[in-house]
Design a protein around this nucleic acid. Structure first.
Lengths: 194, 194
DNA sequence: TGCTTTCCGCACCTATCAGTGAAATATAAG
DNA sequence: CTTATATTTCACTGATAGGTGCGGAAAGCA
């Protein structure tokens, strides 16, 4: 009854996310998005929506991919210090790659004006909370396993210590800080849980 | 022998810095800078230079103001844990103000594309180093005063722990995270030095 | 009063921005 | 094959971006 789309929507969304991740919202133009996807702006508009909508979709895709590839182990029942260590090590090795690492789309775009948009704000807040809760989970499980009795207040402090380390690794990794410093930051953060 | 400028250059530079601080480099237009200063672009060009040059000047002014108003106590001979505590408390109370706080111009613009500009990159690196060294100084002095014997490695780890806390407070303050969380992050960071 | 030098005001430049109108094209149902 | 619907192509819009050309206005000096 009608014409079919000629592209793979999943691939296109992945490429939109990669573009926004590399350049942020305001520094990505529709021409950049066309070049990244191989589609023209008409196709992007018809298929997804305007630039803001594309960014919301990219945020959702980024969160999904980040959780799956990085955060999931910290959210499981058997999470522990080793999972946090592996996560931080991944940040550091990605920051160490020659082509550079773009950190975290949520952390970096939280510094842009688009962060004041309610829909963006909600996604940012939700992902920040999720990161913190993942660390809290890993921390709580690790303490249970070693029979360490920590107060709720102490657990919350340490969870935010891990969260703070997580955020600064993303930000300072994107800022191209020396890898030695990132290692010390990660090492220091890990004292919360080990 | 020639005409005089009609504006106060110091005030103008301060207003340029405020505008870039609030909106970053790429999200500030020449029209924004005109509105912020009350000058037209011709005056800005003749008086300072192009947009990039104005940003470099703003970065320098930001660093100078930040050091003077916030970082200086940590750089002194009698620096200590209390100075770090006061600094972090200032971050938190500024983040708590209703009109919002713009964090740190260096931290936020380090996530922008302009951070790849060599002159910008150099300023960013230099200020990040200065922050870290200020914390290292406060830490070292505090440890000397309490006769705590810490290894160089341990001091470096803790200095970067304080630095990491400093950065994440700036970033998460701008990102409008809950004040309770900022307090826990600051409190946790302070364990490096107290 | 001229002359020189600097600064100011205004209009203008080209390039790019996000977004759109409408015709051409492809598909599937009848 | 015809028709209805959805997708693609491409040129185009008004707005704004950063940056400039140039005439005129002020100031100091002769």
């Amino acid at each position: 009854m009608a014409r079919h789309i000629e592209y793979n929507p999943v691939e296109v969304r992945q490429k939109l996310m990669a573009q926004f991740w590399a350049a942020g919202y305001s520094e990505t133009s529709l021409s950049d998005l066309e070049a990244a996807t191989g589609l023209n702006r008409r196709q992007l508009y018809n298929g997804i929506g305007d630039k803001r909508t594309m960014f919301l979709v990219a945020l959702d895709d980024f969160v999904e991919a980040s959780v799956q590839q990085l955060l999931a182990p910290l959210e499981g029942d058997d999470a522990g210090a080793q999972d946090v260590r592996i996560l931080f090590d991944k940040f550091i090795s990605m920051a160490n790659e020659p082509d550079g690492w773009h950190g975290c789309l949520v952390c970096s775009s939280s510094q842009e004006e688009i962060a004041h948009d309610p829909a963006v704000r909600e996604r940012h807040a939700s992902f920040f909370d999720r990161i913190r809760n993942a660390h809290l989970n890993a921390l709580t499980r690790a303490m249970q396993r070693t029979d360490s009795k920590l107060s709720i207040a102490e657990l919350n402090d340490r969870a935010d210590g891990l969260f703070s380390t997580h955020v600064s690794l993303c930000v300072l990794g994107r800022a191209r800080r020396p890898v030695d410093q990132l290692k010390r930051i990660a090492g220091h953060g890990l004292r919360c849980i080990s």
